[in-house]
């Protein structure tokens, strides 16, 4: 395929005794909205910092738009936008000054690329004389995204843009990303929120420096290898304790006030579960088969032995 935007081959990085990323292989297509999903310490930031030429890998190769992250780092930097985890805005500068500053650094102006940032920037433009430090979290996020886009990059790297941001701002942010994707830009976004994986074209689930899987959200969920049961009882705590001691339990995880249960026995019928729980005086409210969520898949992959 000739429209690869990001290519990563056997990339490794170690900090002291900690292997931050282990033998990462990944290809991302031009125009893709790609998610790196995993908890703190998974290696998401390390990977993004290597791709944005801010950190050197110990071994392996990576390129963005055919430009090597080491040899061609200067050219590469002109083509990418990067929004780090803690929005690197200048808190003492106003909204407009921040944007003008980033535009100037990349040898352009707000006017020249206004069309690209307009859908985002127009939401905060009314506050353009306000200092960045005085903005709400959601507004800072919009300004940081505008700054990362002002030089019209071909590839956009977003490192946990929605962490610590409330649910409403998170939804709005993903709507902005969808719109941006329509302009043809490649977007690599990292997040610890499993539900945000659903909004990507493809996702890499990451844990302890390794990629557990690379799939589209639908493939991921459809490939969940077990029958999954939703069980709800009067006392969720008691239900979980009972299921954990059952020899036929493969896994039992709390999901809010319900439990997601997988049996060791792939032929298990609803009646058998019901009878067992009733024999333990558990008052069942509901049992049904359900499809797996991304979080179910992540936990399953965490428990699987590593593929060779």
């Amino acid at each position: 395929m000739n429209n690869r935007s990001i290519e990563i081959v056997e990339l490794n990085k170690r900090y002291g005794t900690i292997q931050a990323i282990k033998n990462i292989n990944l290809t991302i297509q031009t125009g893709e909205l790609f998610g790196l999903v995993g908890p703190d310490g998974a290696g998401k930031t390390t990977l993004i910092r290597i791709l944005t030429t801010l950190l050197l890998a110990d071994s392996g190769k990576a390129s963005v738009n055919k430009l090597d992250v080491v040899k061609n780092y200067k050219q590469l930097r002109e083509q990418i936008g990067y929004m780090p985890g803690r929005f690197s805005l200048y808190m003492d500068l106003s909204v407009e000054e921040n944007l003008a500053f980033f535009a100037t650094i990349f040898g352009t102006s707000i006017q020249e690329n206004y069309d690209l940032i307009k859908p985002i920037y127009s939401q905060i433009e009314a506050f353009k004389t306000r200092k960045a430090g005085a903005l709400s979290g959601g507004m800072k996020q919009k300004l940081a995204l505008s700054c990362a886009l002002i030089h019209r990059p071909k590839v956009l790297f977003l490192d946990e843009p929605t962490t610590g941001v409330d649910a409403v701002s998170r939804v709005e942010f993903w709507e902005m990303l969808k719109e941006l994707k329509n302009t043809g830009i490649t977007i690599l976004v990292s997040t610890p929120y499993m539900d945000e994986a659903e909004l990507c074209d493809r996702v890499a689930l990451m844990q302890n420096g390794e990629i557990l899987s690379i799939e589209s959200p639908d493939e991921l969920k459809n490939n969940f290898p077990h029958d999954l049961w939703y069980i709800k009882a009067e006392n969720q705590y008691k239900l979980l304790q009972i299921l954990r001691t059952w020899e036929k339990t493969y896994s039992a995880h709390g999901f809010g006030q319900s439990i997601h249960f997988v049996s060791q026995d792939s032929q298990m019928k609803e009646d058998e579960i019901r009878q067992f729980l009733e024999s333990k005086t558990c008052k069942i409210q509901r049992i049904m088969r359900i499809g797996a969520s991304i979080e179910d898949c992540f936990m399953e992959l965490m428990n699987q032995p590593k593929k060779a």
Partner: peptide, 10 residues
């Protein structure tokens, strides 16, 4: 519970 994997969160 920000920032931990789903099993640790549970």
């Amino acid at each position: 519970t920000g920032g931990v994997d789903p099993i640790t969160r549970r």
